[in-house]
Every structure is written in C-alpha cells, then in structure tokens.
Design a protein around this nucleic acid. Structure first.
Length: 462
RNA sequence: UCCUCAGUAGCUCAAUUGGUUAGAGCAUCUGACUGUUAAUCAGAGGGUUCCAGGUUCAAGUCCUGGCUGGGGAGCCA
C-alpha cells in the first residue's frame, strides 16, 4: 500500500478511506483501552491523531510506541469524536520502524528553550518550532529561484573557493591542503603557497558579487544563491560565520532600477511565504511573535521610503535624540541611528542611498559630486540592514583609481578590471542575507535558529 | 573583540546573611482512569551545584582564572 503524507490527508480527507501513514510519535497517551498517538511526518506542523484500541493489539507492543519512535500505521480515516481535530486514523496495523528510549531521548512533550535546542541541533528539526522554520526556509528559497526564473535571470554558480581576497567584506577562512605541522617556506621566510593544492593562496568566498558581475556583463541578468563565509569574530544574534546570500546582478540597471527590483523582490518572497506557509506562520505567530503575520502584511502594503544618506544625517541631527555615537556627515550610520530612522521617524522599511565613498566599497559608482557613491542599503524594522547594494563603477579609469587609492593589488583584480575595458556597461546589483530575511519571515530573534546547522565562533558541532 | 548577566536533576527554575541530609514543576518509571488533546490523579527513582584553584570551622552561595551560554555594542548580510 502506498504511503500518504499527513498534509495531504488533512488537506483532502476522505472518510472511510484506508491510508498508510509513516512518521514520528509526538505524544502517546491512553485512557484504559484506548490509545491516542499524535503522529507527525514533517509535511505539516499539524499532527494526525492515531486511535488504537488495545484489544486489537499486544499491550507490550503498544508500550514500545514512545515519544520520538518512528512508526507506520495502516488504518481507516474516520471523523473524530474529539474536538481538537476533525478526522483521525483508526489503526488496523502498526509497524514500529525505530524505537526511541524515553529515558534518554532529549525531547520531551513539553516545550524546550531555544538555547537548549541549539545544543541538540541534530534533533531539533523534530520540534514543531523548527519544523515550521525549515519549511518556511524551503518555501522562501524556492520562491527566490521562482521569482528570478520568471524574470529571465540566470542562476550563476560562483565559486566557493576563491583566489581573490580583495572583496573587502570581511576576514576570510583559508583553504589549504598544506601540512600545517610541516609548512613549506620560501627563502624569505614566507609560507610557500606555490606548493599548495591550487598553487596559490585560496580562501572561502565572502561574496559572489565580483564573479556575478562577470556573468551580468554577458548574460544580462543573473543571480547567485549560495553559502558565503566570514571569519569575523562576531558574537551576535544577527551574524553567522557561514550564511547564505542572494546576489542579483543586472546589466543596464541604474540605482533606481536596482531599488525597484530589491523592493519588488523582497515583497514577492514575503507574499509567497504568506500564501504558502499559513500554518507554519500561525504557529510561530502564536508561540513567539504575536505581531509576525500583521507585520508581514504591513510591509507588503508600505512603499519603502527612499532617502539619501545626506537627508538621513539631517533627520538625525534634527531629532533631539540622545545618540551614543555622534552624528555628522561622513560618519557611518550606527545601529541606533538606523533604528531611529526605521522605527521612529519613517516607521516603515527605508532605502538609504548615496553614501560617502569613504565608508563604502571600491566598486561602487562615483556620483558627479565626487564625494558620494550610488550605494543603497535597505533597512528593515527589528533586524536592520537586510540588503546592501549599489550601482557599480563601470568607468575603467575611475575604478582603477579607486583600486589604487585603496591599495588593492591589481594582480588580484585584473580580470574584474577587464570587464570595464571590454564593452563595459552600466550595471547594478545587491546582496541579501538569506538568514536575515528568515529572521523577518519567522519572527525569530536569533539567527542561529533560522539555519539548520549554525556556524559561529567556537561552534561547528554537527 | 568589548560591556553585561548567567551556569544547580533529562528540561525550566528555587535554595534567606556563608550554616542540618540542595528543593519544586515538568519529563521518565509504576499504578489508576471507557475518547484523550502538551490528558488527569497517586506513588517512585533521579544531583561531581560548569571546570581548576583559593578564603573559611563551614562554600551552590565569597575571591581568582578559565570554559560555555544569553543580552547589548562593534564588524557586516
């Protein structure tokens, strides 16, 4: 007999139909002769209630059906006598695939703290909370591919291992096959990377953007969606050493086209999750963040405010707020400043553009004023910067000048510079931190809870 | 990396000014209960008080160092 997923049964129940379901026991309770099992198979946050009449089964066997055990149940779907569910499966036959020792199984029926669940990341997907989160994560990832595919973007696979360390986005993890206990050295005492696997120093990527631009300047519109790595010693609820980033890059887009895309894109993902994960969102809304669903709807209908950095500084200076960090033109915006702008002043997502060139990356297009660059940061309530992007510098001479000013070795970026030499074109792009988006979509407050296996300083278990 | 708070049973927490044999709820186990809903009721078992030193007649409690975790900040996405 073919197995049916619980989600399908609950979506389209056929009374008196015989079904085979397979999953894990969430709870098992009995009143005298009748046993009730809440079965979950991961297809939905909802459980299917299995009803077992003890007289049809061996009572010793039923004792082995403990919380966490994996079973298959063949039975008849009937209307439930209980109030909490409309249908239930009356068991005809139960197969026990994997027992679960109740004495040592760390998950109990009652709730656990998120901190504790992080220490058992191998088991936490079995909880309602993490089931919801990872289903939403999947839906969001699927929506991202769907969105770009519909619009003719090419999914470009940029390298994980990179020879360039000039992206300037953070400290990098080294990749090597050299024997660390017996390193080869050059005559002048440096490590001899010519003997390494790639014959040069290599690292894990901190961004696929530079390679993404190469794709955009050939294929038109591309996006990347893959893991990125930052070896920063960041210990916050918003940072990971390994995280997933989405980086679209578009030829012939200026900064305004870029902003339009960013806003449309992020709203699409939110809408997709609202439409496709109502049960999961409702669970998280009830359990963790009562304003989650309202907030998602609210962002959908708000037009993001678009302001320049210079305007933002003026707003902050006029604010009469007592900021810890001083506000002046040229200063980078601190978390407290961003929070004031988003949550108190504009009260909606904002896009800040045209930052001073000194506080932004070398590849951003210089404005005519010679002082600011066509950068754009999208700031969200609760989570801060969710997107960073810019129109890219497409003028060879200006880009080369910036490279030299910042002492970036030309030998490392020659290939990047060449795109501006051979048929350069205006183009733009941005990067979206997938887990930051997940924080917003799920209402979770710690980024370690929206990725299955978080990598953070001093933590690479599992 | 900086600031700050914390670490006691499987989990969540309590333990007076440093003072007897470190407690409770949940979980687990045993039993009861003829339809339960994180069932309920009764009983039982369960502790290297994060680690290493130190002060003291006496340390879960005070001191020093370390480790781990939470919150805030920086770096950023």
């Amino acid at each position: 007999m073919k197995r049916t997923k619980i989600k399908e049964i609950l979506t389209n129940p056929i009374i008196n139909e015989e079904y085979l379901v397979k999953g894990w026991i969430r709870t098992h309770r009995n009143v005298k002769q009748i046993h009730f099992i809440a079965l979950n198979d991961g297809s939905t946050v909802k459980n299917l209630q299995i009803v077992i009449d003890e007289k049809d089964f061996d009572s010793k066997f039923l004792k082995r059906l403990t919380t966490g055990a994996s079973i298959g149940v063949r039975g008849t779907l009937v209307e439930s006598l209980g109030k909490e569910q409309s249908v239930e499966l009356k068991a005809i036959n139960v197969e026990l695939y994997g027992e679960c020792d109740a004495e040592t199984y760390p998950l109990q029926k009652k709730g656990h703290s998120l901190e504790f669940l992080r220490t058992i990341a191998h088991l936490r997907p079995r909880t309602n909370t993490f089931g919801c989160i990872f289903r939403i994560r999947h839906a969001a990832a699927f929506a991202i591919h769907y969105y770009f595919n519909q619009r003719g973007f090419i999914y470009l696979h940029t390298p994980i291992i990179t020879g360039s360390d000039c992206e300037g986005a953070g400290k990098m993890f080294k990749v090597t096959t050299l024997d660390l206990y017996n390193l080869p050295y050059t005559p002048d005492g440096k490590i001899d990377f010519s003997q390494d696997f790639f014959g040069r120093e290599t690292n894990l990527t901190v961004s696929g953007q530079l390679e993404g631009e190469l794709g955009a300047l050939a294929l038109g519109e591309i996006y990347t969606f893959g893991p990125t790595f930052r070896a920063e010693n960041s210990n916050t609820p918003r940072h990971l050493a390994e995280f997933w980033m989405i980086e679209p890059e578009m030829a012939f887009y200026d900064i305004n086209d870029n902003m339009d895309l960013a806003e449309d894109f992020i709203k699409y993902i939110i809408k997709y999750v609202l439409d496709n994960c109502p049960d999961d969102l409702q669970f998280l809304n009830d359990r963790y963040d009562n304003e989650l669903i309202d907030r998602l709807h609210w962002v959908l209908k708000e037009k993001f405010a678009r302001i320049t950095y210079t305007d933002a500084i003026e707003v902050l200076l006029k604010s009469n707020e007592n900021f810890e960090f001083p506000v002046y033109w040229g200063a980078d915006l601190q978390a407290e400043h961003e929070r004031y702008l988003v949550e108190k002043y504009y009260k909606k997502p904002i896009i800040i553009t045209d930052y001073p060139k000194e506080i932004k990356a070398f590849y951003m297009k210089l404005n005519d004023d010679g002082k600011t660059v066509r950068a754009m940061d999208v700031l969200f309530p609760k989570i801060g910067e969710i997107i960073g992007g810019s129109q890219r510098e497409d003028d060879y001479d200006k880009l080369l000048k910036r490279v030299k000013e910042l002492n970036i070795p030309e030998k490392d970026v020659w290939w990047y510079l060449e795109t501006r030499k051979f048929g350069t074109a205006p183009h733009s792009g941005f990067g979206l931190g997938f887990e930051r988006l997940m924080l917003f979509l799920t209402g979770m407050s710690n980024i370690r809870d929206v990725i299955p296996f978080p990598r953070t300083p001093k933590n690479a278990e599992f």
